[in-house]
């Protein structure tokens, strides 16, 4: 892909990024930060590509460390965000809605 096309995509993504969070309430700042944090864990893709192209052991080891770190970011980020939001939900409706929310004494 040529440079101008990438630049176009980047600039549009900036505006989308500004736009989607511009109206968020302060109540959700923490989950939103955590959610955005999870999304940049997608660097995992880059780490996988680098590890898959590694030709010597040293490169492979460093690349695999990157894979571990990126996975921790991605998986941990989404799990922790979901856990926060799980708590927001349960109580918006009657307790009848509660079963199925936090299984097996999660709280």
């Amino acid at each position: 892909m040529d440079g101008v096309a990438l630049l176009t995509i980047t600039v549009l993504a900036v505006f989308v990024g500004f736009e989607v969070v511009s109206k968020v309430t302060s109540t959700l700042h923490t989950p939103l930060m955590s959610g955005a944090n999870a999304i940049h864990g997608i660097i995992l893709i880059g780490a996988i590509i680098v590890a898959g192209q590694a030709e010597d052991t040293a490169t492979l080891v460093v690349a695999l460390i990157a894979v571990v770190l990126a996975t921790a970011n991605l998986v941990g980020g989404f799990v922790v965000t979901d856990r926060m939001l799980e708590m927001f939900r349960g109580r918006r409706k009657a307790p009848a809605d509660a079963p199925g929310v936090g299984e097996a004494g999660e709280r």
């Binding site: 993504a13 900036v14 990024g17 500004f18 969070v21 939103l32 955005a36 944090n37 999304i39 940049h40």
Partner: peptide, 12 residues
């Protein structure tokens, strides 16, 4: 994805 987080993170 990176730009999205960069931009929204700045606003946040």
């Amino acid at each position: 994805a990176g730009t999205l987080v960069g931009a929204s993170g700045t606003i946040l």
